[in-house]
Simulated assay, not measured.
Amino acid sequence: MALTPTRELMDAAAAAGTGQGAFNVIHLETVEALVAGAEAAGLPVILQISENCAKFHGGLEPVALATLAAARKASVPVAVHLDHAEDEALARQAVDLGFGSIMYDGAHFEYEQNVEATACVAKYAHERGVYIEAELGKVGGKDGAHAPGVLTDPAEAAAFVAATGVDALAVAVGSSHAMTERSAALNLERIAALKAALDVPLVLHGSSGVSDANIVAAITAGMTKINVSTHLNGFFTRGVREYLDANPAVVDSRKYLGAGRAALVPEVARLLQLFALATDLSPVEAS
């Protein structure tokens, strides 16, 4: 239980053909809600701290130490992961702080430069027993663009994994970051082709824009790690907004942040259960 190497959670999910939820940390209240949701479901969770989150908190260490401490106290397995790090120094810092995994994002580079940079970070991580994820094929959405038609090529992906030695690969299959509507259409045939071409788990970024049924279908087709951020942020924000609407005179921020935290817990539990049971669900049950 408690703080668990990411590799253990990923290996177990890949072997079972199920999905492993990986949810983004924004601040301490989301850390607490994500752990509480995992405990309510009785399932493991990966807590992700992004490069943007580290910048918001003035550096990685403060939010990282709080997240690691919460993971150690959890009654279910909790892994801590660095998400979307384009800064190699930040990736190395996460390794040194005790993260179970890092995601180095060199997808903004041309292919050869991405390989070179990712292999360098992977070497540093592996020498210290840390799991590493990378990305190939740009996943859109940081600027709201859905980037249709941008898909990861299976042959190129296989070559990339062989050249870099990464443990998991985030692929572009039709999802997009920061979507507030669940309208993305995943290319299930491409997911299956990537699964057949690779011997490492596949990672779905931008899952907030994907329906439950489509996520279940993606897991069945070969996805393992399912990243969710924006969708869950909406539950927290609505909880805060509803509390403030009902209590306009409140000045103690713990009151409304606590309401946001409480609103997030059930959806965390629901998603973890959905991903863990994905291969057992019928299309009707998953919709």
Score class of each variant (00 low, 15 high):
Asn114Asp: 13
Asn114Pro: 01
Ala117Lys: 12
Lys123His: 05
His126Trp: 11
His126Leu: 07
His126Tyr: 09
Arg128Ile: 06
Val130Tyr: 01
Tyr131His: 05
Tyr131Glu: 03
Tyr131Gln: 03
Ile132Tyr: 05
Glu135Leu: 10
Leu136Ile: 12
Gly137Trp: 13
Lys138Cys: 04
Lys142Ala: 08
Gly144Asn: 10
Gly149Ser: 09
Gly149Lys: 08
Leu151Arg: 13
Thr152Lys: 02
Ala159Trp: 00
Phe160Lys: 00
Val161Ile: 03
Thr164Trp: 13
Thr164Tyr: 10
Gly165Pro: 00
Gly165Ile: 01
Val166Asp: 08
Asp167Arg: 03
Leu169Ala: 09
Val171Ser: 02
Val171Trp: 08
Ala172Met: 11
Ser176Ile: 01
Met179Leu: 15
Met179Thr: 00
Glu181Trp: 00
Asn187Ala: 13
Glu189Asn: 09
Arg190Ala: 14
Leu194Phe: 09
Lys195Gly: 03
Lys195Asp: 05
Lys195Arg: 15
Ala197Leu: 12
Pro201Asn: 08
Pro201Asp: 10
Val203Met: 04
Leu204His: 02
Gly206Gln: 10
Gly206Glu: 08
Ser208Ala: 06
Ser211Trp: 04
Ile215Thr: 15
Ile215Val: 15
Ala218Cys: 06
Ile219Phe: 00
Ile219Pro: 05
Ala221Met: 06
Thr224Met: 08
Ile226Pro: 00
Ile226Ser: 04
Asn227Asp: 01
Leu232Arg: 11
Leu232Asp: 04
Leu232His: 05
Asn233Val: 07
Thr237Ile: 14
Arg238Thr: 13
Val240Gly: 01
Ala246Asp: 11
Pro248Gln: 13
Val251Met: 14
Asp252Arg: 00
Lys255Glu: 15
Tyr256Trp: 15
Tyr256Thr: 05
Leu257Ser: 05
